[in-house]
């Protein structure tokens, strides 16, 4: 432990030259009097307040207008990918459930009926209300079976409705596969 804390990444012990001292800047006269700074801040806010142009450029009038998304990286509703035979690509390894910081994924794995795979999920529930859309599940998945889609119009009239099960997640894949094709080819052998 001692070695870990006192050695730099290069394996060399810390010396004083490695330390960068950052000091709080000295306050100027107007900063010390506070009020001039207040007026400075108000000048900025007032400038924005009377700039109609910025508003017109930046505001998206949802739902009439929709945002231009970067579909490759947008983190919306999850989907469960299908492999080339139309089966669920997930191997029920629980890595997403483990990585999930919000504990919103619940999987039940069983022995798979297919020879090329050991395990598959019989149940795969994601609580979309609990999810924080961090994308950790996507990062953790060893077979790229779970992905986040650019789909963000997510509504439901009850909490139960917002718990997406396996069928619903596969349906999301069917709906979004043209918009965002599955990234990587399937890895076999699990």
């Amino acid at each position: 432990m001692v070695n870990e804390t006192t050695q730099s990444a290069a394996g060399r012990a810390w010396t004083e030259t490695d330390v960068v001292y950052v000091d709080q800047p000295e306050l100027t006269m107007s900063e010390r009097l506070y009020l001039p700074q207040v007026f400075g801040g108000m000048k900025t806010t007032l400038r924005h307040m009377f700039k109609m142009r910025l508003r017109k450029e930046k505001v998206v009038q949802y739902p009439e207008q929709k945002r231009q998304l970067r579909k490759e990286i947008y983190r919306g509703v999850h989907r469960l990918n299908r492999d080339d035979q139309g089966r669920v690509a997930c191997v029920a390894c629980f890595m997403c459930e483990t990585a999930c910081p919000a504990h919103c994924i619940h999987i039940e794995g069983v022995e798979s009926p297919w020879p090329d795979r050991e395990k598959y999920p019989i149940k795969f529930d994601i609580d979309e209300l609990r999810c924080i859309y961090c994308g950790m599940c996507e990062e953790a998945c060893p077979v790229d079976a779970i992905e986040l889609t650019p789909e963000y119009h997510l509504v439901g009239s009850s909490r139960d409705e917002m718990i997406f099960d396996k069928e619903k997640l596969l349906m999301v894949y069917d709906r979004t596969k043209d918009e965002k094709p599955r990234k990587n080819p399937m890895i076999t052998g699990y």
Binding site: Y21, D23, Q24, L27, M29, E31, R32, L33, Y34
Partner: peptide, 24 residues
């Protein structure tokens, strides 16, 4: 008030004092 501000070297709202560089 401004003069006192110069002498005291502190803002009227009282920013938390940190150690000066030499001390640290």
């Amino acid at each position: 008030v401004a003069l006192i501000g110069v002498v005291v070297q502190k803002p009227i709202t009282g920013r938390q004092r940190s150690l000066i560089k030499k001390e640290r």
